[in-house]
C-alpha cells in the first residue's frame, strides 16, 4: 500500500473543501465514490466488491473497459431483442405498405406484370428493415440507459469531470444491503481507491 488519500488528505485545498462539502450531507448519501488511475486497479476492485457480495455498485470509465462486466457480475445487454422487434416491425411495415400501395390503392397494369411482385420489392423491404432496426438500436440504447439524464449524484464528486478523461471511478451505492459507511470505505481504501467521498442523492 503506497498511500491512500482520504477526504482529509486531498491534493489541493479547493478539492479538499469540495470533498468535505460532499461528505457533509445530512441524510443518507447516494454512494461512496472514489477513483483509480488504471483499468487494472478498477478491474481488481470490481472483482473484490462482487466477491464480497455487493450488487449496487458501478464503474465510470473514459472508455469501455472490456471484460469489466464479468468483474462486476453484470448480465449481457438486452438491446438485441429491442432491435429484433424494430427489424420485424420494419419488414412488416414495408410488406404492408408495398401491398396496399402497389396492389390495392394504386394498381397499375404494366405489360400484364404482377403489381405486387416480390423480387422487385426486395430493396424496399430491405431498406425499411434496416431503417427501423437502426431506430430501435438508437432509441433503445438511450431508453435502456435512461438518458438524457443531465444530473446524476455521482457527478458531484469533485474529480468526476475526469471520468471522461483519465480516471476510473467506482461508486458503491448506499442502498446496497452490504453498504456500511465505515467497512465499505475501509475495503475501498485497501484496494487503493483515491479521493473517497460520499455524494448526496
Amino acid at each position: 500500500m503506497a498511500h491512500t488519500e482520504s477526504s482529509a488528505g486531498s491534493a489541493t485545498p479547493a478539492a479538499a473543501a469540495a470533498v468535505a462539502a460532499a461528505v457533509d450531507v445530512a441524510t443518507r448519501p447516494f454512494a461512496l465514490v472514489g477513483h483509480f488511475e488504471s483499468p487494472a486497479q478498477l478491474y481488481r476492485a470490481c472483482e473484490t466488491l462482487r466477491d464480497a457480495g455487493y450488487e449496487h455498485f458501478d464503474a465510470h470509465t473514459p472508455f469501455p473497459v472490456h471484460g469489466l462486466e464479468r468483474a462486476m457480475g453484470l448480465p449481457a445487454s438486452k438491446l438485441p431483442w429491442v432491435v429484433l422487434c424494430g427489424g420485424t416491425a420494419g419488414l412488416s411495415l414495408a410488406v404492408w405498405l408495398a401491398y396496399y400501395s402497389q396492389e390495392v390503392w394504386y394498381r397499375h397494369n404494366i405489360g400484364g406484370k404482377e403489381a405486387f411482385a416480390i423480387p422487385s420489392l426486395i430493396p424496399i423491404f430491405f431498406e425499411l428493415t434496416i431503417l427501423l432496426s437502426s431506430f430501435a438500436a438508437f432509441f433503445g440504447l438511450w431508453a435502456m440507459n435512461k438518458q438524457p439524464e443531465f444530473f446524476h449524484p455521482v457527478m458531484q464528486h469533485p474529480s468526476f469531470h475526469r471520468a471522461s478523461d483519465d480516471l476510473f471511478f467506482i461508486a458503491v451505492e448506499a442502498r446496497d444491503p452490504k453498504y456500511d459507511p465505515v467497512a465499505t470505505r475501509a475495503l475501498l481504501e485497501t484496494l487503493g481507491t483515491r479521493e473517497l467521498a460520499e455524494v448526496a442523492p
Binding site: 458501478d58 464503474a59 462486466e69 438524457p148 471522461s164 471511478f169
Partner: peptide, 11 residues
Amino acid sequence: LGWRGSHRHWL
C-alpha cells in the same frame, strides 16, 4: 445527453 461513462451504460 448526460453521459457519465457508467459501465452499465457502456454495455
